[in-house]
Design a protein around this nucleic acid. Sequence first.
DNA 1: TTGTACGCGTTATCAC
DNA 2: GTGATAACGCGTACAA
Lengths: 343, 343
Amino acid sequence: MPRRRTEKDTVLKDIADVAQVSLMTVSRALRGVDGVSEARRAHILKIARRLNYTPNSSARSLVTMNSDLIGITVPNLFNNVFAEIMASMRGTFDSAGFSSVVDTSEYDVDIEFAWAERLLTWRPAGMILTGTHHHPALRDALRRAGVPTLQIWDVTDDPIDVCVGIDHHAAGQEVAQYCLDLGYMRPGFVGTTEGRDTRAEARLTGFAARYASAGMGAVRIARSDERNPFVAGQNATRDILDGPAHSGPDVIFYLNDHLAFGGLTACQTAGLSVPDDIGIIGFNSLDLTAVLPVPLTTVRTPLRAMGTTGARHLLARIHGVAAVRRVALPVELVAGATTRRQA
Amino acid sequence: MPRRRTEKDTVLKDIADVAQVSLMTVSRALRGVDGVSEARRAHILKIARRLNYTPNSSARSLVTMNSDLIGITVPNLFNNVFAEIMASMRGTFDSAGFSSVVDTSEYDVDIEFAWAERLLTWRPAGMILTGTHHHPALRDALRRAGVPTLQIWDVTDDPIDVCVGIDHHAAGQEVAQYCLDLGYMRPGFVGTTEGRDTRAEARLTGFAARYASAGMGAVRIARSDERNPFVAGQNATRDILDGPAHSGPDVIFYLNDHLAFGGLTACQTAGLSVPDDIGIIGFNSLDLTAVLPVPLTTVRTPLRAMGTTGARHLLARIHGVAAVRRVALPVELVAGATTRRQA
DNA sequence: TTGTACGCGTTATCAC
DNA sequence: GTGATAACGCGTACAA
C-alpha cells in the first residue's frame, strides 16, 4: 500500500483545492513572489494558516539544489571563545533565515570530516570551519560541492574560500615583545596537550621565535590534558614551578585566561607573589577576569567582530559576491597588574 | 534551458550506468539493504567512491518523510550548564548517525517557536527543548508533526512527550532546609532579571516556600541583568549588602556558581568574611570551583547523566518505543567552606 | 495574472 | 537477486 500522508500533513495541493486556484498560484503566494493579485494572496495565506500548512524544505531543496542550512563546526562549546564566535555569527545567519547545523570536533580532523560529509548530503548554503587545519580531503570535498566556506579564528594565505581571524603567530610574538620590554628573561608557556589546539601552538611558536631572535634561552613549557581548564592551568603551573630555584620562569604566557586563573591560584599556593615573584599573562580576555582583584595582563581578541565580519563575508559569498579571501583582525595586549617591569 | 547538474555532481543513475546495473540495485547496495549479491555490492561501492558520490538527503527525505536531523534549542551557549548538556547528548546522537540543528533562544519563547517552525519544514527525527516553558502553540505544532520531543533540564507532570531533568523547586527547598539546619535566619537570593530563567525562579520559589513554612521573613532578593555572570553576581551582591547593618542577609543563595564567585569577590571588597560574616551558596558546581581557595557550598546537578539519559529516551521514542514520560534526577548538596553553623 | 507539463534524486512496490 | 515504474512536494519554463 502506498504510504499516505498523515491526516494533518497539509501540502500546497490541498490549499489549492480549498482556495479554488492552481497549485502554482499557492506556491507563488506563499513565497511572496510577484504574479499573484493581492486579494488572492491574502486569501491563500489565510487558508494556509488555517490548514496548519508546513512547507517541505526537502522538496524545495531537491528542486533548487540548495538549502537554508549552514554548517558550523567548532572544537567544543565549553570554551567561551567558541561560544562567543558562534553566538555572534548565528545572529547574522538567523535573521537571514538560515538554520545552523552544529558539530563539535574535539580538535579531531577525522570527526570534522565525517560530519562535513554527512552535512554535504543536505546541500548546505554554507559551511564554517574553525581554524585552518583540516582533513586533507575536506578542501576538495567542499570545492567539489561548491559550498561557500568560511574559516574562522585563524588566518592563512591559502584559505579554502575565505578566512577571518587573527594571526596567532604574530600575537605570540607581540606578547614576547611585551615581556622583553619589561625585562623578563626566563619565559614560560602553559598549555594543553601538544597537537590538539594548533592555534595555541602557533602562539607558542611566535612567542618562542621572538625570544630566540633576542638571544634568550628556550621557553619552559608545561602542559596538562586535564579537562577542566582551571585545574589544567593549576597543575601545569605547579609542574613548571617545580625544580631548583631561579631556574623556573619569571613570566608565564598561558593558553588562555582560564588556565591563567588556575595558574594564579597555583602561584598563591606556592607562596609566590604576582607580579613580584612571577609574571602571568593570559589570552582572550574572558568573562572571569572582570571580577578578579588583580587585573590580569592578557590579550583581547575581537571575538564578536570576528563573528560578525565572518558571517558577513560568508553571506556575501553565498549571494555570489566574491569578496576578499583573508581578513586578519588586530589583537590588543591589555597590560594588567600581573606583570611589571623587572628590576 | 533545463538546469543541468554540475560536472561533478554524481548521482545514482551515473553509477548505475558505469556499473552496468539498474539504478535500484545501486540504491540498495549503497544503503546496505538485502537484495544485492556481495560481489555486485562491492563493485558498486567502489565505483561510487571513485565518482565521489554524495547522496542527496533531500530526495531521500522527500520520499521517506523523515530525516536524520535533530533539533536542539538551549537558551545560550555561554552557560556551561547548557554546553555540558548539549555535549553529553550530541555524543549519543552523533554515533547514531544524526546531525544536530542548534538554536539559542535567549530565554525567548517566540524565538524558540520561530526556530522550531522553520526546523519542522525539514521533518526532523526529533526535537529537544530546554525546560518546560514554551510558546503556547509549540506543543500542538510538535504533536501535529509527530516529532518525538525531549524536554530537558526541568521536569513537569505534563511533558509534550518525555522530559528528563531535575526538580528545581525541590532543589530550592533542599537548599533552604540546609540553611535552616545551620541556623541561617535572613535568607537572600541573587539572580538575573525576573522571568527570564524560569528554572532559577522555581528554585527561588522553593527556597522561599521552605523558609516561609518555617515562619521566617521573606527572602531578600537582588537581581542584575548584566551579561557577564561574574559581574552580575558582584553587582547584585553589592546591592543586597547595601543598607542598614543587620538587615542584610546572613546567607545568599545564588543563581549559579558563576554569580556566586562574583558575590564572593563583592563580599571581600565589602570587608565581609565568608563564612564568618555571611554564607554563600552556589548552584551547578561549575569548573571554576575546583580551584577556589575556599570550596564553595553548592548544588551538584547531574548534567552529563541528564544528557545521556535524555538522549537515550529520545532515541527510544524515535524508534517507536514508548518509554517513560518523566525522569527526575537527584541533585546533591555539596557542603563547602562558604557556609557554617551559626552561633 | 494564472495554469500546465515536467523534472529534481531517491525509495517503495511489484513484476520478473 | 534484479529491474521498471510510480510516487514524494515543490519550482522552473512556458503557454494561455
